[in-house]
Simulated assay, not measured.
Amino acid sequence: MKSLELKPLIRVLNELETRSCLIEQQGHRIMDYYREPQIANELYKINSCTKSVISALISIAMDQQLVPQPETPIFEFFPQLGKDNDARKRDITIEHLLTMSAGFNWTEFGGQNSFPTMSKTSDWVQFVLSQPLSDIPGTRMEYSSGCSQLLATLLRSASGQAVAEFAEKHLFQPLGIYKYHWETDPQGTHTGGFGLHLRPLDMLKFGRLYLNQGSWEGRQIIQIETVRYSTRPFLPASKPQKAYYGCHWWTSSFSDERKAGTKIDYFYALGFGGQYIIVVPAYDMVVVLTADKFKKKRTPVDIFRQYLVPLLLQENA
């Protein structure tokens, strides 16, 4: 992508007061945009992009056989489900948590059984497990930070380490990520669905790891098969995005109408307010966006879909 072609994008980033935009293609940084220079070294909340980091940690733990295979019932880690009146809860698997298809009656963004309500309780895990089922496990995706907290708790139990400690050893240090902040729940478990703060460049490193199918500087951090499993579409989703959902990764595509409607697949981590880590394998590209000018009454602009994709299609025409 030529620098001239990026000028319209830079103009949009300025107009929207975008916090940061980093683009790497074929191993070369073609955009390093920061609204202010100091943002490059500032930690910022990546919100639900945290979910994709939890997915990576679960993947690593599975590869190391610390966490059992995806089809394993979570009853092994949460024996209190044995006392629940709804026997179907004992059929919930690790894969169901990863794909947010556990079946809990959940309203992520508000209400009695929501992420805000969970975060006000003294025991988030018990709150999630006690929710009634609205669906048979595995049948429907319902976005839930509750599922993510169960995964973080499961990882802590299986590894015998704090989630951040496990992340430092097996993910952050290999990628050269040394600066972060991670919130915890009342039990001291690091938050699975939100609460991780990173620099934009370190978000880019994480995306590059997945672009390279789990490989980093000659070392296989996550097995190729596990990366492919995690980032393939499992179930359709409508909230907070109309797309497909993998294992705590979103998946989608865009069409190149000039090439007989060829579809270009991509997958991405998405955080509230416009935080993105986007991986486009066909273009050998990673895109990171962070935003902090979010207005509650207005949906954040999807800069990638609305402004960058047309440039990509134009370049590859």
Results as ranks from 00 to 15, higher is better:
309 V>Y: 09
199 R>I: 10
144 S>G: 04
298 R>G: 05
107 T>M: 04
12 V>K: 11
273 G>L: 04
259 K>D: 12
152 A>E: 00
61 A>M: 08
221 I>F: 06
37 P>W: 14
51 K>E: 00
168 E>P: 03
279 V>L: 15
71 E>Q: 11
232 R>S: 14
1 M>T: 13
272 F>T: 07
68 P>H: 10
137 P>C: 09
164 A>K: 07
123 D>E: 07
4 L>Y: 13
223 Q>H: 10
207 G>D: 05
251 T>L: 08
203 M>Q: 15
108 E>M: 02
256 D>K: 08
272 F>Q: 10
56 A>K: 03
212 N>M: 10
55 S>T: 02
5 E>Q: 15
200 P>Q: 12
170 H>E: 03
83 K>F: 15
297 K>D: 11
141 M>N: 07
24 E>D: 03
220 Q>Y: 14
262 T>Y: 12
296 K>T: 13
54 I>Q: 03
233 P>V: 12
210 Y>V: 04
290 T>S: 05
263 K>M: 11
187 Q>F: 03
72 T>W: 12
217 E>F: 06
233 P>G: 08
260 A>E: 12
218 G>V: 05
120 K>P: 12
95 E>T: 02
89 K>V: 08
228 R>L: 09
30 I>Y: 09
292 D>Q: 05
1 M>Y: 13
167 A>M: 01
76 E>G: 10
54 I>H: 03
102 A>R: 03
292 D>I: 01
35 R>G: 14
56 A>N: 06
86 D>V: 08
151 L>M: 04
189 T>D: 06
160 G>L: 01
301 V>P: 08
11 R>T: 15
31 M>S: 13
24 E>M: 07
174 P>V: 04
218 G>R: 07
26 Q>A: 07
250 W>K: 04
4 L>W: 14
67 V>Q: 02
106 W>H: 02
294 F>G: 08
303 I>S: 06
37 P>L: 11
13 L>R: 13
182 W>A: 00
175 L>K: 01
232 R>I: 12
93 T>M: 03
219 R>P: 10
287 V>D: 01
203 M>F: 11
151 L>H: 01
122 S>G: 07
236 P>D: 10
43 L>C: 11
132 P>C: 03
79 P>N: 12
91 D>V: 10
200 P>M: 14
24 E>W: 04
214 G>M: 05
218 G>K: 06
53 V>F: 01
10 I>K: 13
54 I>A: 01
258 R>K: 15
310 P>S: 09
246 G>K: 06
12 V>A: 14
231 T>R: 03
192 G>M: 02
18 T>C: 14
183 E>K: 01
55 S>Q: 02
87 A>I: 14
